[in-house]
Amino acid sequence: MSRRILRAAVVGAGLLGLDLAERLAQSPDLVCGLVAGRLGSAGLRRAARLGCAVSDAGIDAVDPAEVDVVFDASDATAHPARRAELAGAGVLMVDLTPGTGGVVVAPTVNGHLAETARHLSLVSCGGQAALPVLDVIARHCAPRYVEVVTTAAAASVGRAGRRNLDEYIAATEAAVRQVAGTPQAKVLTALTPALPAPAFRVQVAVLAGDVEPGLADGIEAAARAVRAGFAPGYEAARVTTERGRITVTVTVAARRPGLPGHAGNVEIINAAAVLLAQRHAATRKA
């Protein structure tokens, strides 16, 4: 049987939401039926020019009888109960905010969970960049402590992202602990106004005991999988192991036409979100 094209709604008309709407326009499995944001926002006007229906009612504009997938790119603290309600109604909830709830998913780590789960948490852009590396590290040693430092161009982080920095740190730390299998993790983040704007960067440091051979090759294989699957500008470089300390530098450059190269943070989480929704769509036959 052929695939069913799923109807999608995007909640949030900022940097993430608009890029999502543009990606959905290019998807063979998803169609953007609604972009919901704030009254009078420039983002809604731009979404309307893309041909999407728009609403200023936010997530309350989403009718579960009219959509199959909801991408939430709004505010982490705004409506957790509404997210759960939509997921309970059979809608696939793809949460791009660092909110609580949902199954933590990264496409190359545990992307198969998107086939059956109804509430996916993409954690954060830093989480999406770090988790493929940490998944490999955890298979080569037993981490005792993990530190992740993310640096993004200020121009690539919108209003909601700035409001949610505390939630960003908390959600990313929780996901790091889960994937690395350690109770101790620290996440630090910085927004830089530097010009020219630098690519999104994530520095991963791990303290562990003995490290099994093949770590660097495993990390490069994980990076190739991310590049081939959804984020062609993903690189994991400068892998070092010395006296039980492992360090890896991840950079993500945006490659989608129309997105500035420094917006790798936008690219990695949005590309992951669309890929996971397409994987879910593949399991729902017409």
Rank of each mutant, 00 (worst) to 15 (best):
L165I: 12
A225T: 03
C32P: 10
V109T: 03
L16R: 07
E173T: 13
V148W: 02
A253L: 08
R255H: 13
Q203W: 10
T182Y: 08
L15G: 04
Q278Y: 05
A282C: 11
G101A: 09
A25E: 12
V62F: 04
A208D: 05
G264P: 01
G43S: 09
P107D: 00
V239Q: 04
L15Y: 05
M93I: 08
S124W: 06
L207E: 15
A208P: 09
L165S: 09
V176P: 01
V133H: 11
T249S: 14
E173H: 11
V31T: 15
N110R: 11
H262E: 14
P257N: 04
A153C: 05
E167V: 02
R82P: 07
A180H: 03
G33H: 13
D68Q: 07
E242P: 01
L30V: 03
I246T: 06
V187T: 12
T192P: 05
P257L: 09
G90M: 07
L92D: 02
H280Q: 08
E115R: 15
N164L: 01
V204D: 05
R227K: 08
V266M: 07
T283M: 08
R256P: 11
L120I: 06
T116F: 08
Q178Y: 06
L259D: 02
D217F: 08
R139Y: 00
